[in-house]
């Protein structure tokens, strides 16, 4: 399971004085869905383009499936959709896939199968230029699936899809992973990554800020406490969980960095101290909280954000 499919070592891309990707070192293991998460312009696509051989790194190195990025062998075992689908506008969706199948030495049946897999068979004879954004996106995924690649690189694959299409795309990605494909997925949609990814790398301003499992990132569990008077509650919480573990939230609530198992003791101590306990519950941090924490603040001096 821990066989490495993609590794990068201080991968860097500069455009003039602008550093788009700055010493990114990440690893993707076989069979996992790896989420590459970051705001727009963070360097996600540029990193993926280097992994696919579309762009040359300014410095640093990378290995994809044990080979140099962009080498015919590496590309042959990789399927990718990057920066939106690029197809011949005058050809039908089916013929576009047939062109790509020929590049791979596959036959027309493979192209038709890929078309069916993204449910475009019924519109396969229509010209690509007549497709909606969502259909174009799905055709791009079909081209990436051609030939059953070991590694799938999908750059914001749900772009332009409606909610149903996004759900279907997530199902497809999960199924692909279950079938043994490794998926490297970039996204700025946190919910998407949270639901389907095993591990995620967060990139911001060209730098890989953190790389971890979703569970680890959301990690430290917390308790949400509403009790009055607030100053008494804060004092008790600091006594129970530690001085740095209690945070005052807007609206008078408290977030206490403590496991759910600490709730009974905290409640007892609050009551003993004379506070009225209005609410106490585990507060699971969403990936969104973590994400803004990491990308807004300095990675070292992570500041707490309020519950949303």
């Amino acid at each position: 399971m821990n066989e490495t499919i993609v590794t990068t070592n201080r991968l860097t891309k500069r455009y003039g004085s602008h550093t788009a990707v700055d010493a990114v070192s990440l690893t993707v293991h076989r069979g996992e869905v790896y989420g590459f998460l970051g705001p727009n312009g963070a360097g996600k696509t540029t990193t993926l383009r280097m992994l696919l051989g579309l762009a040359r790194p300014s410095s640093g190195s990378a290995t994809v499936l044990g080979r140099a990025p962009g080498s015919p062998d590496a590309v042959h075992h990789t399927g990718a959709l990057i920066e939106g689908p690029g197809f011949f506008p005058y050809l039908s969706g089916r013929n576009n896939l047939r062109v790509m199948a020929r590049f791979q030495g596959l036959d027309d049946a493979d192209a038709d199968a890929a078309l069916a897999r993204v449910d475009l068979a019924s519109r396969g004879s229509d010209p690509f230029r007549s497709y909606s954004l969502g259909m174009k996106q799905r055709l791009g995924v079909a081209a990436a699936l051609l030939g059953e690649p070991d590694l799938l690189v999908l750059d914001e694959p749900t772009n332009g899809l409606d909610p149903a299409g996004m759900a279907d795309m997530r199902t497809l990605i999960v199924n692909l992973a279950r079938d043994g494909h490794t998926v490297l997925l970039s996204s700025h949609l946190l919910a998407e990554v949270q639901d389907i990814c095993d591990r995620i790398g967060v990139i911001s301003g060209g730098r890989l800020v953190t790389e971890s499992t979703v569970a680890d990132l959301r990690g430290r569990s917390a308790l949400l406490v509403r009790a009055e008077p607030v100053d008494v509650a804060l004092a008790v919480a600091m006594k129970v969980a530690g001085d740095d573990a209690a945070h005052l939230l807007d609206g008078g609530g408290l977030r206490v960095d403590a496991p759910a198992a600490a709730a009974p003791r905290l409640t007892r101590d609050l009551v003993t101290a004379g506070a009225d306990v209005l609410e106490i519950r585990p507060a699971e941090r969403s990936l969104e909280d973590v994400f803004f924490e990491i990308t807004d603040a300095d990675p070292v001096g992570r500041s707490s954000t309020e519950e949303s």
């Binding site: 696919l52 590309v75 990789t78 690029g86 790509m100 051609l146």
Partner: peptide
């Protein structure tokens, strides 16, 4: 771009 991702080089 799409052709370059198909593998012939």
């Amino acid at each position: 771009k799409t052709a370059a991702l198909q593998g012939p080089g």
